[in-house]
């Protein structure tokens, strides 16, 4: 996919403010009244919305958007991680492999699901299901919603870092098309482990960050209470990340997702279906040439992400303002 085109079609301006781009909004939602778009929320407000206990979680999306969901459990090595669910489902008329972090609705469920923080066995289950998807040519759909990977003693003993790294590899090398959507919290490596997709979609009030705002504030401000400031500084909102070209499309939330869960989920579903359809058409499972083309396109997509400059040999060049986006 030509990412420059996709960035142009983003309904958000470079400055991160919603713009009345009616054409883009039509494609996104069909029904949204762009003139009624609410004022921009602060990054910290969005962190709170992204973590809202009633915000729809991965299973809510599966319930609304798919039929015939068959959950597949276990990593075949150690256990089954309920913080990361996966399985087969019918979405937009075809069978897909879905993967998603799952937070709990209640305290009891949250304990069982470890608050959506996956352990190595979760990431290894994901890899198993990715290989399974490749074998049968199922496109992959992932739902990202995690504070981060589990930081416990057992997770370290069972190789959390390796499990995430191999998850990244499995996704980077995947022989079938993939679409990822950040529906709530995109927490660092634990999120990225199921996020190396051909298209990255993000909900307006979701956040995606390299470290939690609290963690960043503790380390760089030496004060966890400065988290709201850190959140703003880290540029973790959907439209900022779209402006950077990292996120391909933002799904607007006319009201926060937990206030109108069904509408939000359906709007997200329309966007996901469109991306998946485009990818399946561009890279048909029956075409043997499609796999190298798909891998190459994905490689180029991630290959370009970064901000650097190339100094002359004589150096002494002042740091210029970078052209963003």
């Amino acid at each position: 996919m030509d990412t420059s085109t996709s960035r142009r079609s983003s309904p958000w301006s470079r400055a991160g403010l919603p713009v009345a781009d009616t054409a883009g909004a039509d494609v996104l939602l069909g029904v949204i009244d762009v003139d009624a778009a609410p004022p921009r929320r602060s990054a910290w407000d969005r962190v709170k919305l992204a973590r809202h206990p009633e915000r729809p979680h991965a299973i809510d999306y599966l319930r609304e958007l798919t039929i015939d969901f068959v959950e597949l459990h276990g990593d075949r090595a150690f256990g089954d991680d309920r913080a990361l669910v996966g399985g087969l489902a019918r979405f937009d008329g075809r069978t897909v492999m879905v993967l998603g972090h799952q937070k709990g609705e209640t305290t009891k469920e949250n304990l069982a699901r470890n608050f959506g923080m996956a352990r190595p066995e979760g990431y290894r289950k994901a890899q198993r299901l990715l290989r399974h998807a490749e074998k049968f040519g199922f496109p992959v759909l992932t739902f990202i919603d995690t504070p981060g990977a589990d930081p416990g003693i057992g997770s370290e003993e069972r190789g959390q870092a390796t499990a995430i790294a191999e998850g990244l590899l499995a996704m980077a090398d995947l022989a079938v098309p993939s679409v990822a959507v950040v529906i709530g919290e995109g927490g660092s490596g634990g999120a990225l482990a199921v996020g190396v997709a051909d298209r990255i979609v993000m909900l307006e009030n979701a956040v995606y960050a390299v470290v939690s705002p609290e963690g960043c504030a503790t380390i760089l401000w030496k004060d966890a209470a400065r988290a709201p400031e850190a959140a703003e500084t880290m540029r973790i909102t959907a439209e900022e990340l779209a402006a950077f070209g990292i996120v391909d499309e933002v799904v607007p939330e006319r009201v926060p997702a937990h206030e109108q869960p069904r509408e939000t989920i359906l709007a997200t579903g329309r966007v996901l279906a469109r991306h998946l359809r485009e990818l399946v058409e561009a890279y048909p499972a029956a075409d043997p040439e499609a796999v190298p083309r798909l891998r190459d396109a994905r490689y180029r997509k991630f290959r370009r992400i970064g901000a650097w400059r190339e100094a002359r040999a004589d150096d002494g060049v002042p740091l210029d303002d970078a052209g963003v986006g």
């Binding site: 790294a165 996704m171 090398d173 190396v196 760089l220 880290m234 540029r235 990340l241 891998r295």
Partner: peptide, 23 residues
């Protein structure tokens, strides 16, 4: 680990480097 000062650009280097190693 990842450099916080470059935000999600840093996180994405994890994907970018692994993708290069896949090749």
């Amino acid at each position: 680990g990842a450099r916080m000062h470059e935000g999600l650009f840093s996180l994405m280097q994890m994907a970018k480097t692994v993708a290069a190693l896949a090749r």
